[in-house]
């Protein structure tokens, strides 16, 4: 925050992250199972018309929306994770800590498994309508849990209790999901499992009409929480003494994180790891606890990391697309362990 070295370090890190993000975005659009020459991609990106209609369709209808999905989902989950870590003063908190992802999972499970079992309609075979129904179900589940959490937050004084409620919601949801799986057909269970693996590929432009504004709203809202988040670093008592309205701040933070997590989970499935790890990685790079630096930083970093994972998931040789959760966790876990070990050796 102060001091020339700290300032120049911060600026350098910002620029590096922005360049990284941009290059990964371009790479995501350029690379894919269908080879399109880079010069053609560039031409298309600056707005010139290109000859091949197939290529144009692939770029516009598949790669661009996917890349935007990855970028926004990464940024949103990271911002949510950072807020939860600060609010609960717990380095293990992530956006899924409130049970919102589990709520989304439950919604999907009810639609996919229960309706399948009762009416004998397999959503797996319904194509586009099926996918829209799944999104809607996840949306309802996620926002249902969010509303419950907000309701409880007004009544519970203690943040730790809220945390426990979130975790309990998670357990209860998985129990019900397990029950539903038990009575369902193989195909339905498989389509549920597929949803649970997460994907950035499911968003066509007609879904983006909802996705982009909602995530943008959440990201914008996060920027307005910088001051309360900074004060909350000191804990609730100090924050109250510094004039912060604890209840209102807590509610705003939960609402914004909830909006981000619920939207992203509904459209992409539960994305593991990003929301937990990116704040840690960003804190390691920027060496600050100041949210006016960290919030923009985690958004850039989260977006870049999600794009990288999306790129890896589509590497040639991986037939089709790998589940994004497998990539985020497999790439991410070693990175986090490495960072933690390195930081330890520095302090000792």
């Amino acid at each position: 925050m102060q001091g020339e070295t700290a300032k120049s370090r911060k600026n350098f890190a910002y620029i590096a992250l922005a360049v990284l993000l941009l290059s990964l975005f371009v790479l995501n659009i350029s690379l894919g199972s269908v080879y399109i020459p880079f010069s053609v991609v560039l031409k298309w990106m600056v707005g010139l018309s290109i000859e091949s209609e197939i290529w144009q369709n692939i770029l516009l209808k598949s790669r661009l929306p996917q890349s935007i999905t990855a970028l926004l989902a990464g940024a949103g989950l990271a911002a949510g994770g950072l807020q939860m870590q600060t609010l609960f003063r717990n380095p293990l908190a992530g956006p899924s800590i409130l049970g919102i992802s589990s709520g989304a999972g439950l919604g999907v499970a009810v639609v996919v498994l229960l309706f399948g079992a009762i009416q004998g309609v397999s959503l797996a075979g319904l194509g586009w309508y099926g996918s829209l129904t799944i999104t809607a179900a996840a949306f309802i589940g996620a926002f249902g849990v969010l509303l419950m959490i907000l309701f409880l937050a007004q009544r519970l004084k203690n943040n730790a209790m809220l945390l426990i409620v979130g975790i309990m919601v998670g357990y209860a949801s998985s129990a019900i999901v397990g029950l539903l799986q038990f009575i369902s057909t193989k195909e339905d269970v498989q389509s549920f499992v597929l949803w649970g693996l997460g994907s950035f590929n499911n968003l066509s432009w007609d879904k983006h009409v909802i996705f982009i504004p909602m995530v943008a709203l959440g990201l914008l809202g996060s920027l307005f929480l910088i001051k309360p988040l900074n004060v909350l670093l000191l804990g609730e008592n100090y924050a109250a003494n510094l004039g912060l309205n604890i209840k209102r701040s807590r509610l705003s933070i939960l609402l914004i994180t909830g909006l981000l997590t619920a939207t992203i989970t509904a459209f992409c499935g539960p994305i593991a790891f990003l929301g937990l790890a990116v704040p840690h990685l960003s804190k390691g790079i920027f060496k600050t606890a100041d949210h006016s630096v960290l919030i923009p930083a985690v958004m850039l970093f989260g977006g870049a990391l999600a794009l990288l994972c999306h790129l890896i998931a589509r590497l040639p040789g991986f037939d089709g697309t790998l589940p994004i959760n497998a990539v985020t966790s497999l790439i991410g876990a070693p990175i986090v362990i490495y960072v933690i070990l390195k930081r330890r050796s520095l302090t000792q």
């Binding site: 925050m1 102060q2 003063r89 001051k227 900074n230 004060v231 670093l233 000191l234 804990g235 008592n237 100090y238 510094l242 004039g243 912060l244 804190k283 920027f286 060496k287 600050t288 606890a289 100041d290």
Partner: peptide
């Protein structure tokens, strides 16, 4: 209350008093 925040500098901590 014990403060357990990583990377919070003295300047940042004290400046929170200006909140």
């Amino acid at each position: 209350d014990r403060l357990d925040v990583q990377n919070l500098s003295v300047f940042e901590l004290v400046s929170l008093g200006r909140t």
